[in-house]
Write a protein that binds this DNA or RNA. Structure first.
Length: 878
DNA sequence: GCCCTCACGC
DNA sequence: GACGTACGTGAGGGCG
């Protein structure tokens, strides 16, 4: 017989976590629901992941407990539970009842004690127990049969602790947790401990002596006069603290393990409560699971599977679906079409479409307007069938991205669900996923595509109105829509890559790597997989006994910053660093790129994702051509392989100089920063002068390096912690740099304040061209979430405006190239850089045009500056 | 198939 | 005082 699975939940703790992790949501009746919502998410996750046979949620009861007899001030000074949370507890109880989950509370005892008692009574070997809580104190309950799962961040991100993991994290056994607390105390429960003893000292002492009692017996042997004195003076307090921290396993509870038996819940009792609370998304989440809910009625849609194509279908305007199943549309076949317009909705099979010249002409007719979803995909797929798609009036994927970039809207179903009433099944539901993905029967396909087409036809007006309301119509029609076609063109052209050059570099790397591997294995005295952080960590920190500087949640960290700190301590380190660097080049850039070079043309066709990045930037996949190495020479050589596609042509690269800082100068109107750009100063030197209060000729290279990192931080919105990491200094020092920076650039400081205020006021921040990013967490009472939202509020207008500018330059540039009848082709964009190929005789002209177009893309109050270079490869164009 | 760590670019 | 900290994509290992 299998073991019983008992899940015990610390109800108060999880409710608190949920409350502080989520913004203060309320439902349409004005009742706060954030804690209930978070609690529900956690419950669903537990039921799904753990599938418990037994389950119970324990709550604290009343204000005083048996511990108050020991120590009257126990939990003293603790802030009162916010009323916004208190009022949610009745709903949490209702929720548990609806889920048919047992709940329990006991006068004079805390939830911990109920959990401790039940967990210990389940120690007969027939039970697997999991305890869910946000309170680290409960780690004392861990045994080989009992795991404690702590919430990490948000609600549903958790970390399970076994005996080994407690030991790994604290270096002590679970039952020594109470000894640790006895010495260090716990401010949140007002447990005093021994003054002056914190976590580090407590662990050290417990590791050495085993328990509080043993420590107190051995005070004489302990080094440090001050510590001795404190331990001596606070003996009783230490013992009492340990007692307070100890969870009882003998609470007089009136229910036994069998009473916690869990048999699942019924939608009929859960759904009405969800509805009352306004948990629409959870309703849908459960509703989407066919096992839990009978199929929801889809509204009727009249569509025709047509056998011939005629004018009735080819209306202006129409919604058009060009269906592809393969993710990479450069390779995808078209599986079928659907058209929806005022006359009706029609499914057209791909074979029928292929034979119809009328249909082809309609697709290519710029005057026949098409409403679409991801038009770039259709454009590229059709191009390979010899069809030039024209007349794209509206791309609802782009529109919904502009309306809210944080919604991930990968397919028509997502947008339909969010904005419309018409039900569209997800592609996964219709086609399956992974290895099982396949075309359904044709009538199913026909209905699916028809529903998509119909949804798009209806959604277009709705989305267009919303864009107008947001003053985003220009952004949509004049920037993102034309840009999608420019990107389609760039992707279709592709960039020529010399596979032979890559292969030669690969052979060379191979030789170096095998030598390094041999050396590393010899130095380690054993053969192991250097690419495995786990094995590498064991070799470095256990076998070779090097000091472990940092841990990840799964083991030792072996990242670059850790290894760099160990350089000089052992010969092996440097070799590992080089091995890593070269290994990355081999796998990601040599092998990775070779895999995607098109056999016939020798070109690489990336895909730019125009609807993903929260800031408005583009991203690039399959392959990512926006992270080709440049910083280190060994990697930079990869760029030798990127060459013009025709003899006599050159590669030309144009990049904006300091575009983000120029944008910052413009937005903030900071006089000091504007002056720096107007006088064409080196901005990092200028920053160093102001931050370190020195003259230009006193700026050392170290000062400039630090100033550059500060500017980097400003541009990317990193925290003092982030800056401290990148400079290898303390967080305090990093904080002081930032402070000094903001004093030197008061306009910037004011901008930062204003931007946060704007986000609080409107709920979003925006860029020069009205791109938006919503920041609901800006008002969160969770420090982390709020801080993150604040940094985002400061940073997104800067990065997003820079993205606006280069996108505008791309659209303008595409037009200029054709107006001037140049053969030059735009190939790539890397955030602040555009890459072209052109016949050598066009280079001079191209340089001139590129500079003009990029620098004049928008008018700022500081000049935009572009650096251009060209050569026989991307490497030479530096 | 999914998660984690690591590493590359801006 | 907590907590984990710019945005992306991709490779490899290790687990189920």
């Amino acid at each position: 017989m299998g073991k019983n699975k008992l899940v015990l939940v610390d109800g108060n703790s999880i409710a608190y976590r949920a409350f502080f992790a989520l913004p203060l949501l309320n439902n349409d009746k004005g009742v706060y629901t954030n804690a209930v919502y978070g609690f529900t998410q956690m419950l669903l996750k537990i039921l799904e992941d753990e599938k418990p046979s037994h389950m119970l949620v324990a709550f604290d009861a009343g204000k005083t407990t048996f511990r108050h007899k020991t120590f009257g001030e126990y939990k003293g000074g603790r802030q009162k539970t916010p009323p916004e949370l208190s009022e949610q507890f009745p709903f949490i109880r209702q929720l548990l009842d609806a889920f048919k989950i047992k709940r329990y509370e006991l006068e004079n005892y805390e939830a911990d004690d109920i959990i401790g008692t039940l967990a210990s009574s389940a120690a007969d070997g027939n039970w697997d127990v999991k305890v869910f809580t946000g309170d680290k104190d409960l780690l004392q309950l861990v045994t080989p049969d009992v795991e404690v799962v702590l919430t990490r961040k948000g609600i549903t991100e958790v970390e399970a602790y076994t005996v080994e993991q407690v030991n790994e994290r604290y270096g002590i056994t679970p039952d020594q947790i109470i000894d640790m607390k006895g010495l260090m105390g716990d401010p949140s429960d007002n447990i005093p401990g021994v003054p002056g003893v914190g976590e580090k000292t407590a662990i050290k002492l417990i590791k050495e002596y085993g328990s509080v009692e043993k420590v107190l017996e051995s005070i004489d042997q302990i080094s440090g006069a001050k510590l001795k004195e404190r331990l001596t003076e606070n003996k009783d307090q230490a013992l009492m603290s340990k007692e307070l921290a100890t969870i009882t396993k003998e609470a007089p509870i009136e229910l036994g393990l069998e009473d916690t038996n869990y048999e699942g819940y019924e939608n009929s009792s859960v759904f009405p409560l969800f509805k009352e609370l306004g948990f629409q998304s959870l309703l849908e989440r459960l509703g989407g699971d066919e096992e839990l809910l009978p199929e929801t009625e889809k509204e009727e849609l009249n569509f025709q599977m047509v056998s011939s194509i005629d004018a009735e279908m080819l209306q202006n305007p129409s919604a058009l679906i060009v269906e592809t199943l393969t993710e990479d549309y450069h390779k995808a076949d078209i599986q079928g079409y659907a058209i929806s317009n005022n006359n009706g909705t029609y499914y057209i099979s791909s074979s029928l479409a292929k034979g119809s010249n009328e249909f082809k002409e309609w697709l290519e007719d710029n005057n026949q307007k098409k409403r679409m979803f991801d038009a770039k995909r259709a454009h590229v797929a059709l191009k390979r069938q010899g069809i030039q798609l024209n007349g794209i009036e509206f791309d609802s994927q782009l529109a919904s991205y502009l309306l809210n970039p944080s919604e991930s809207l990968d397919e028509v179903a997502d947008v339909a669900k969010q904005y419309g009433k018409l039900t569209v099944d997800s592609n996964e539901k219709v086609y399956g996923k992974g290895a099982k993905k396949k075309l359904p029967e044709e009538d199913i396909l026909a209905e699916h595509l028809s529903r998509k087409a119909h949804a798009i036809f209806i959604l277009t007006d709705l989305l267009a109105d919303k864009l107008k309301e947001n003053e985003q119509s220009n952004l949509f029609y004049d920037l993102e829509m034309p840009l999608s076609l420019v990107l389609a063109k760039m992707e279709e052209i592709g960039v020529k890559v010399k596979a032979d050059t890559l292969r030669e570099m690969g052979t060379d790397l191979e030789a170096q790597l095998s030598m390094l591997e041999k050396d590393i294995h010899e130095l380690a005295g054993v053969s192991f997989n250097i690419n495995s952080p786990k094995q590498l960590g064991e070799i470095l920190f256990e076998k070779l006994n090097l000091p472990a500087i940092k841990k990840t949640k799964t083991g030792y960290s072996t990242s670059v910053d850790v290894l760099e700190k160990l350089e000089g301590k052992h010969e092996i380190i440097n070799k590992i660093l080089i091995y890593r660097q070269l290994g990355k080049l081999r796998s990601t850039y040599i092998e990775g790129l070779l895999k995607v070079v098109h056999e016939d043309t020798g070109r690489i066709h990336t895909r730019f994702n125009q609807v993903l990045a929260q800031t408005g930037r583009l991203s690039s996949i399959d392959p990512n051509l926006q992270n080709i190495p440049i910083r280190l020479e060994a990697g930079r050589k990869i760029r030798h392989a990127f060459v013009p596609s025709q003899p006599g042509w050159k590669i030309l690269a144009a990049d904006y100089s300091q575009i983000e800082l120029r944008v910052l100068a413009h937005i903030s109107q900071d006089e000091n920063l504007m002056e720096a750009f107007q006088s064409e100063m080196d901005v990092h030197t200028k920053t160093a002068m102001d931050v370190f209060h020195v003259n230009q000729d006193e700026v050392t290279s170290e000062m400039r390096r630090r100033a550059k990192a500060v500017n980097f931080g400003i541009v990317y919105g990193i925290s003092d912690y982030g800056l401290s990491q990148s400079l290898g200094i303390t967080r305090k020092e990093a904080g002081e740099f930032i402070k000094s920076y903001l004093e030197s650039f008061p306009g910037v400081q004011q901008y930062m304040k204003d931007s946060i205020a704007e986000a609080k006021q409107n709920g979003y921040v925006s860029t020069l061209l009205h791109r938006r990013r919503y920041l609901p967490e800006i008002n969160s009472r969770n420090f982390n979430l709020r801080s993150f939202a604040e940094r985002t509020a400061m940073n997104t207008p800067i990065q997003g405006t820079a993205a606006d500018i280069i996108k505008k330059a791309m659209v303008d540039m595409d037009k200029r190239l054709s107006d001037e009848n140049l053969e030059a082709k735009m190939l790539l964009t890397v955030h602040d850089e555009l890459i072209f190929e052109a016949p050598e005789q066009e280079i001079e002209k191209l340089k001139e045009i590129v500079c003009e177009v990029m620098e004049q893309a928008v008018q700022l109050d500081v000049p935009l500056k572009v650096d251009v270079s060209w050569g026989d490869s991307w490497y030479e164009a530096k």
